[in-house]
Amino acid sequence: MQVYVDGIGILGPGFAGWPASRAVLAGEAPWPGGETEEPSAAILPPNERRRSSALVRWAMHVAEEAIRHADHDPRALATVFASSGGETGVLDQICRSLASPERVLSPTLFHHSVHNAAAGYWGIATGAQHSSTSLSCYDSSFGSGLLEAAAYAEVEQAPVLLVAYDLPPPPSLFPARPLTAGFAVALVLCDRPSRRNLARLKFHLEDVLRDAPDTLADPGIEALRGGNPAARALPLLTAIARRRSSGVRLDYFEEQCLSIEVSPCPP
């Protein structure tokens, strides 16, 4: 199974967009770290942006960057949205309401609580009508989303937008899921070679899940990788940024990893 990466969007501490992040990951510039600026999520109509959660805006922001970078029409793409915990901020508000004697639940809050809220907003913003799959695989959500998206591109012979995103949960739920920082990444994956390709990803299926994942040399970036499921994409993004053929091992559950051969395009 192989797919091509045509576009990348990225947002997190010290990672504001692909051009600057590529230079950091390629070792051409130091990682600036610091706080992440609130994303503009400009693709959302103003009314929708006002109603949307921060998590939705993070997802929309990187999705739009990846689409622009790849120069694809968003309506032509299927989507895969991967998030470990989804709308934890909305769920916190819902559980708070349900714990009060009145149990008055806002209808808007309820339909914004679904795991596929970001996918719904993407559909409203772009009018995209192809398949959209929202999934979770806890810390392996990026790897699981990548497999889902790659299988879609290969079997349906169609381009896919993959978006992985998680934010630290609100204070009550934070001890249950202590994510250290927000992170979001989007990849446009394509089944065929073209001049838009940035890299080729090859999955060796007989042994796609193996042992011992990669870690990153920079301790700050490595801490980010360990602190947010979406940031588990960083070893893959590093290989793409360095434009060298290399094997990448993304963690997949505690005791396994997802093994990918990454080659630059053009070679």
């Binding site: 679904v114 999934l135 695989c137 899940l209």
Partner: peptide, 11 residues
């Protein structure tokens, strides 16, 4: 089991 796994949550 040790194969690929996911939970799909599209309402």
């Amino acid at each position: 089991l040790r194969g690929p796994a996911a939970v799909i949550s599209t309402a």
